[in-house]
């Protein structure tokens, strides 16, 4: 056998090895979290308020406040993010020309914003809060997470919107529509893009701990107003794991399992939507 076919064989084996390594990482992460977290997990734990207070009765503490806290932050910031980013995507793709300088700069800027670490968003939010004399609260958590996910929203919807055939716009114009009036045509066309973008953003928002940690405070109660602090699932995991008692850590693993399950569901449904709707897309 000559050198080049030996080389070919070796690299093919290496490549398959690398791909299997990726699988191994996924399985090892999910398996280790699931096997550790399953023991302490119970329906009771999920549906009860309170979380990490070492001296409170363990019987009365659970994940509910963190789950609701996560829902509040994720729900509100996703909604706000959509409201802000849909007009921006529409503007970039319909109002601006295809080769517009502003669109070019804007796309780079959103990519850059996407790359900025969440801890920097958190620190930025923290400085604003100090300036305003605010303490960690639901509202500041929501604002920071909204800022964090806007670039994801814009860039992933924009990817879809860029594929959008311009002929459809021209058809609308020729019927006398203004640019603004084409918005519903465009929205209908990029709907699957909006869905995947939302799932991506929700995934990022629900798992983010660094920015929320700096801006939302922490509590084991369900907040009743926007100015109260709030706890989220990743923060609950972090706090439980930081406790010295093995029982608390055990619960931390269970909380991690709950979080993993939520994120897995999101990512699988994201894939499903992409596959499902990209088949009958206009190209």
């Amino acid at each position: 056998m000559n050198f080049k076919s030996i080389e070919e064989k070796i690299f093919k084996i290496l490549m398959i090895g690398a791909t299997l390594t990726v699988f191994a990482f996924v399985i090892s992460i999910i398996y280790s979290i699931a096997s550790k977290g399953w023991n302490a997990l119970s329906w009771n734990l999920i549906t009860r308020v309170g979380g990490y207070d070492l001296y409170a009765q363990w019987e009365g503490s659970g994940f509910l406040s963190a789950i609701v806290g996560s829902l509040y932050i994720v729900g509100a910031s996703t909604l706000l993010g959509l409201l802000i980013s849909i007009p921006v995507v529409f503007y970039l793709n319909v109002y601006l020309k295809k080769r517009s300088k502003m669109a070019y700069v804007a796309r780079i800027a959103y990519d850059v914003l996407f790359g900025i670490p969440s801890i920097v968003y958190g620190a930025f939010g923290f400085t604003i809060m100090l300036y305003l004399g605010m303490r960690g609260s639901l509202i500041s958590g929501i604002v920071v997470v909204t800022l964090l996910i806007i670039p994801i929203f814009i860039r992933s919807m924009d990817e879809v919107a860029r594929q959008f055939p311009r002929d459809i716009l021209e058809a609308a114009y020729s019927l006398g529509a203004t640019r603004f009036e084409t918005i519903f045509v465009v929205l209908r066309q990029i709907a699957p893009g909006i869905a995947t973008a939302s799932l991506l953003s929700i995934g990022r928002a629900i798992g983010d701990a660094a920015s929320v940690m700096l801006t939302a405070g922490y509590t084991d109660h369900i907040p009743t107003s926007l100015t109260q602090p709030v706890g989220t699932l990743p923060m609950l995991v972090f706090n439980l794991y930081s406790q010295p008692s093995p029982e608390a850590q055990e619960r931390g693993y269970s909380a991690a399992l709950v979080l993993t399950l939520i994120v897995l569901t999101l990512s699988i449904s994201g894939r499903f939507i992409t596959n499902r709707f990209s088949k009958n897309k206009l190209q």
């Binding site: 798992g207 983010d208 701990a209 993993t260 994120v263």
Partner: peptide, 28 residues
């Protein structure tokens, strides 16, 4: 056919929160 299995795995790996990686690091 192979891509159909690898892409979801990569999706999952990319979607897992930082804190889960942290717990994995501690456990394993």
């Amino acid at each position: 056919g192979i891509r159909k299995y690898v892409f979801p795995a990569l999706d999952i790996l990319g979607g897992l929160p930082s804190i889960i990686y942290g717990i994995w690091g501690i456990l394993l």
